[in-house]
């Protein structure tokens, strides 16, 4: 915080600018979503009218409703599977010294960061081979590519920070590694699981490339694909009103979640990046 009055004003001006830039686009989308007819085409900062028509139009489409259900199902199933596999794996990675651990950790991190397009054609073949093309399971399977390494990675950093004394005490009492995980660590890990799960959920909810490639019919789409392919009567005519309404519908729950879990999310995001 600057001490001279001039720099203090500058500082607050900067703060205000940051807030406006961060919030304005979403505010503008919300405002547009309530406008119809000619009002929508007049660029204005304050709303000129208020109508639920765009929302009625979007929610009235059966395909949009089913795309929300698809997204909810796919994202939650993906997160559940990833957490299930990640808890035991991250215990091994965080708590047991074995040869090749560093290399394995780096490989896992590498998998979470490599370009999705690099596996697209191979995955397309696999999805068709398994007969799950245009099925939610195709996306649940393919989202594991990025949710699983990510959850393993973050849970490993969380688990490293748990005190060794607890584990040593359990070992002295004769607890097996499985008992240590389920009875000793899991109760302590709940906050970390919520954070990781939430971040993985957001990742799966927002994914676009696989969802675009592995679904073909309108009722199998996920929310991002549905919004991207929402079209009007003609190709040129983009239905901005309904698009903004749909965007607001799928974004508001995310924003609420993020604001509620603000601190936990920041902790989760930085867990992999910065050493504590």
């Amino acid at each position: 915080m600057p001490t001279t009055p001039f720099w203090r004003y500058m500082f607050y001006a900067g703060v205000v600018a940051i807030v406006i830039i961060a919030v304005f686009p979403f505010y503008y989308a919300v405002m547009t979503s309530f406008e119809t007819g000619t009002a929508i085409f007049k660029p204005n900062i304050l709303p000129e009218m208020f109508s639920w028509q765009n929302y009625a139009q979007v929610t009235g489409q059966r395909a949009f409703a089913s795309s929300i259900l698809n997204s909810v199902f796919i994202a939650s199933t993906t997160v559940f599977c990833a957490l299930l596999l990640a808890v035991t794996a991250s215990y091994a990675l965080a708590r047991v010294r074995f040869r090749g651990r560093s290399l394995l950790l780096m490989t896992i991190l590498g998998v979470s960061m490599f370009p999705q397009i690099a596996v697209l054609s191979g995955l397309y073949e696999l999805v068709n081979f398994l007969g799950i093309y245009n099925r939610p399971w195709a996306l649940v399977m393919s989202y594991t590519i990025f949710t699983l390494p990510f959850t393993v990675w973050v849970l490993t950093t969380f688990m490293r920070e748990l005190p060794t004394e607890i584990e040593e005490a359990a070992i002295v009492d004769g607890a097996t590694p499985w008992v240590i995980i389920t009875k000793v660590f899991l109760p302590l890990l709940w906050p970390a699981l919520v954070t990781t799960g939430l971040l993985a959920f957001i990742g799966a909810w927002n994914e676009f490339l696989f969802a675009l490639t592995f679904t073909i019919s309108e009722d199998m789409r996920t929310v991002p694909v549905a919004i991207a392919l929402l079209s009007g009567a003609s190709v040129q005519e983009i239905p901005w009103g309904p698009i903004m309404a749909a965007s607001v519908i799928v974004t508001v729950p995310l924003i609420i979640l993020v604001l509620i879990f603000q601190r936990k999310i920041v902790a989760g995001l930085t867990a992999g990046g910065v050493k504590g």
Binding site: I18, V19, A22, V23, P25, F26, A29, I202, W205, N206, F208, V223, P224, V225, I227, A228, S247, V250, T251, L254, I255, L257, V258, L259, Q262, I265
Partner: peptide, 13 residues
Amino acid sequence: AAVLIPWAIPTIV
């Protein structure tokens, strides 16, 4: 909190 909003919005949106 305000700064987190752009991050929370899906890329497509």
